[in-house]
Design a protein around this nucleic acid. Structure first.
Lengths: 247, 247
DNA sequence: CGTAACCTTGAAGCCGATCAAACGTCGTGG
DNA sequence: CCACGACGTTTGATCGGCTTCAAGGTTACG
């Protein structure tokens, strides 16, 4: 029974996000239980995965690809409030309605669980609940860092902040040396960048050009970015160049 | 042994935040265990409770009073990233360093737990972990709503958004009829409002005057606010006047 | 009464938004 | 093959909202 848009489930043990997703802390038997209630869904770039206000009957993890979380005002102004990368969790246990639009920006594969069985399992499986708490606290920190970007940074600093976040997260996914020039692909259009940064797409374009002109970044095509000096980029972002102090 | 700045612990059963704080789901025996590791601390208005980067040896709940969570850039720009009201939780289990400054804006009483015993208890007490997850998810939603305010709203809309949030939260604390004019005290200076909204204090002042001139709010002194028509205020905030759709 | 903290108001300037036009790339169909 | 249009992007010109700088007002408290 292979419905279009769904795929046969590979084993959790081979899952690329096994050690980072909501199931990261699970033992073999717990994984087996999860495996029995999971299913995969694929979405194409541009597809809306969840509409704000709709009833949500599943929760799940991004396996591969990228999605965005956005809010829209009645007059059409939109603000991105989250960027969903592989291993990130979608949906809120305990609430039936979706609060935001979730849109695939690339082709994407999600590992889904029907909401009720998942909630039941969460109640019995502290490993899942704890991991979800940990991930939610991380997301809260990320959201708060973003509030500083939105509220207090200039357009140039906003762009530099976005680039440095994407660069760092990209580096954390692939096993690369941490210094030397960083190279990555921007997964976002200029418009999506603008929605993330609280700017217009024209301003994003102008500031990207300015950063290129000033040698902070190099561009190949519209999306392929090279950062010759990461600490320079972090300075431009208004962050301490020596990384935040966390423990 | 009554150290200045600490008070004798009243019973959890009489606690004003008993049903909303991190302990809300606890049974009598769990409360008793919590009671044995808790202690109260008081802070005066203006005092910094926790410095960003410092080691945090406790977590806790706001019992009464108001505090703010702020981030500061090297050049002094600051952004408030959270407003802590009675029952709100401070501190992150699993992390030793504080990520933000926590400052008392009014005199405040906190119910504190030393971090290690609390973490141990959390591991054994699903009621606590679940409630904390629930509260963290709520905070994440609030942070994301605030990202829309910071990124896409005009100064006037920002002020109206802040006023409507304070008004609604105030209403939820006292058992008042939900319509008719709303009256409340702003717990924030113009500067604190500016830090919350990503504005300057001058702009806050001007827009407050404008909302008053236009009859959206009435002011008695600088802090005492009357909202004759709540739905009018919500329109000014750019929100749907009929309340968000949640379930 | 005097001072300090907080707030209001005014004038000028700048940053980012808005409006507008043109460019490059890609896929489609004549 | 090339014309065409759709889409994403770049760049220019102008406008306006918010910040900045500055001065004066209000309130509380010694």
């Amino acid at each position: 029974m292979n419905v279009p848009g769904q795929a046969i489930s590979p084993s959790c043990m081979d899952c690329p996000i096994r050690h980072r997703a909501v199931c990261a802390r699970c033992e073999a038997d717990e994984l087996a239980a999860l495996e029995s209630i999971k299913y995969y869904r694929s979405f194409e770039a541009g597809q809306t995965i969840i509409w704000s206000g709709d009833k949500m009957d599943f929760v799940g993890s991004v396996v591969s690809g990228i999605a965005t979380l956005t809010q829209t005002m009645e007059d059409g102004r939109t603000q991105m409030v989250g960027l969903l990368l592989p291993s990130d969790f979608v949906g809120r246990p305990g609430r039936s309605g979706a609060a935001y639009d979730v849109v695939a920006t690339t082709d994407i594969v999600m590992c889904c669980f029907r909401k009720n069985p998942f909630e039941k399992m969460m109640a019995d499986t502290p490993h899942i609940a704890h991991r979800l708490l940990e991930m939610t606290l991380d997301e809260l920190d990320a959201a708060r860092e973003w509030m500083l970007v939105l509220g207090r940074k200039t357009a140039r600093e906003k762009i530099a902040s976005l680039l440095s976040i994407v660069a760092r997260r990209d580096a954390s996914l692939r096993p690369t040396a941490t210094h030397g020039p960083m190279v990555f692909d921007l997964p976002l259009t200029r418009e999506a960048m603008a929605d993330y940064l609280g700017l217009t797409l024209e301003t994003v374009s102008r500031k990207m050009s300015a950063l290129k002109r000033d040698g902070v970044i190099q561009l190949e095509g519209k999306r392929h970015v090279t950062v010759p000096d990461m600490s320079r980029l972090m300075e431009e972002a208004g962050d301490d160049a020596d990384g935040g102090v966390f423990a």
